[in-house]
């Protein structure tokens, strides 16, 4: 059975693509055959973050419209043996995403033996975002500790609970996970930023992780390497913890509290 996981948020620029790339890579590193699909038709980005932009020939829309086969469009990741990327079209618009077309692509991925399919949702609540979540079994709600992002996350939760196939079938609902990203423990400590506990209390979705705000995300995207591969970075460790929790392992939250730099560090720099 394939598990389909949508990475969504409502608001733009909160870290969906960063998360999709690292989450898919993390599952593949654990040995699962994984595909990650860019649903951001017209504004594709996942190929850049995965570092496979020069190998894009066909895309999701080509597959849906029958201009290419799924096998032709899937790009093998350069870091992980069992990870494949299905890019979005740069030229078409989101209307090219039909529900039947998306469903067929997902079914075909299942036949190819994929264990996890990660759907990187575009921002907004329109067609692209709805198509990305329609067939989801689980959802990662990416939220920044900031008012507009939290409100938009609540909107997208409402849409998930209304428009997903699981919601409409009335059976087991989509399993929701809250991921708080771009988190700055110092600013939380100073009372300038919502804490992850505040966000969780407001949205009432179980938390799967907290990703700190860090320069290493920019370094990662500059190189076209998912952040989870940046050795010894907090962001990579935090994403690996997310994978562990997703797989049911016990992993306490890390990088969520601020440690005041000691006197030595303040005097001599760290």
């Amino acid at each position: 059975m394939t598990r389909i996981i949508v990475v969504t948020s409502g608001k733009g620029g909160v870290g969906k693509t960063t998360t999709s790339a690292s989450f898919a890579s993390g599952l593949a590193m654990r040995g699962f055959k994984t595909a990650v699909i860019d649903f951001d038709v017209g504004l594709r980005n996942l190929d850049l973050i995965m570092g496979c932009e020069r190998r894009v020939v066909y895309d999701l829309v080509n597959v849906i419209s029958g201009e290419a086969t799924l096998n032709q469009a899937l790009i093998k990741d350069k870091h992980c043996e069992n990870l494949f990327v299905l890019p979005a079209s740069q030229t078409r618009d989101k209307d090219a995403l039909t529900e039947e077309g998306v469903e067929k692509v997902l079914k075909d991925l299942e036949h190819l033996g994929f264990e996890y399919v990660i759907c990187d949702s575009p921002a907004g609540i329109e067609r692209g975002a709805v198509m990305a979540l329609t067939f989801a079994d689980e959802a990662i709600i990416v939220t920044n500790p900031e008012v507009s992002s939290v409100r938009d996350s609540d909107r997208i939760l409402g849409i998930l609970q209304a428009k997903s196939k699981r919601a409409q079938a009335g059976g087991e609902p989509v399993k929701e996970h809250l991921l708080v990203t771009r988190y700055s423990p110092k600013r939380v400590e100073d009372g300038e930023m919502l804490s992850y506990k505040d966000v969780q209390e407001i949205l009432r979705v179980p938390i799967i992780g907290v990703i700190p705000e860090s320069e290493s995300v920019l370094h990662a995207s500059n190189q076209g390497t998912p952040a989870i591969h940046i050795e010894q970075s907090e962001v990579a460790e935090a994403y690996k913890d997310v994978i562990a929790r997703f797989l049911g392992e016990d992993a306490p939250l890390r990088f969520v509290s601020y440690e005041k730099p000691g006197l030595f560090k303040r005097l001599f720099g760290g």
Partner: peptide
């Protein structure tokens, strides 16, 4: 200013 509480 501590504004996180207002946000919440």
């Amino acid at each position: 200013p501590k504004t996180a509480n207002m946000a919440k």
